[in-house]
Write a protein that binds this DNA or RNA. Structure first.
Lengths: 138, 138
DNA sequence: TTAAATGCAAACGCTTTGCAATTGA
DNA sequence: TCAATTGCAAAGCGTTTGCATTTAA
């Protein structure tokens, strides 16, 4: 279901600002920060505000329409939930981000459930480390 | 090797402030925040400052004497490296933290290295989710 | 003696909030 | 109509920084 409809169905208003935030999220290739969303919003709607972006993102998180990932950059990045679950390998040296399929993590998820009775929420994991090129040199 | 000696050997001074920061880290049962370290430091050394705590922690991170873990609390927590590597399951509902042995994560680490040529830094992973008691009720 | 380390106060960067004005349904 | 939403400005919070002063070695 589209984010637009999801908002409406829960009784929330679909304002121009919210539409543009949703559009920025969808157009983003990869993960996008609140600041970047705001830049796009502001370019098309100059009398808009970053607090609206944060409020919209908070709402969308609550409705499970976006997920939040912390790449340890001092700010958090957002991603539309419906684009699928995947994970990230973040190279601490060159900054490269390698996408990782959910299936790689599933064995761990299963172990945690069986051995620890813990239902892990592994929707967007960012694993830090070093990529091949960088640790070859280090 | 003790943190005190490690600092000395690298040519850094062992100030009273640094000793108290190290002591707070060692006495901490589990993970401790900069603010909590500062409270202990300040109680014994009233003319001390939180910026010293941050500077000491930064130095100790650089020397691999402490590790940093983000429990998504809006602040980061520290832990002496020599106390051993372990991971955490954080229940998003009741806040309970379950310690997890490193060995649980090793298969994933191996997979990432073999399949992705990625040397993952999994020294202190915090995995969010729900513990048995909470997801039984949810 | 002197470079390293500290205290202080101010700045920083991301995020949140109170409130009056606006607006979607 | 009128509660939901917004813009604005200011605050909040953890963390960092510039600089004069102090201090460990």
């Amino acid at each position: 279901m589209s984010c637009d409809r999801a908002l409406r169905e829960k009784g929330y208003r679909l304002t121009p600002q919210r539409m543009l935030v949703i559009e920025a999220l969808h157009n983003a290739n990869g993960h996008i920060s609140a600041e970047e969303i705001y830049e796009q919003l502001h370019a098309r709607y100059s009398y808009s505000n970053i607090s609206t972006v944060y409020r919209t993102l908070e709402l969308m998180k609550k409705l499970n329409l976006v997920t939040e990932t912390d790449f340890s950059e001092g700010r958090v990045r957002y991603h539309v939930a419906e684009k699928g679950r995947h994970h990230h390998l973040v190279c601490r040296t060159c900054g490269r981000i390698i996408d990782l399929d959910e299936s790689i993590i599933n064995p761990l998820k299963d172990t945690l459930l069986q051995d620890y009775d813990f239902e892990a929420d592994l929707r967007h994991l960012a694993i830090s480390g070093e990529c091949h090129d960088c640790y070859k040199e280090g």
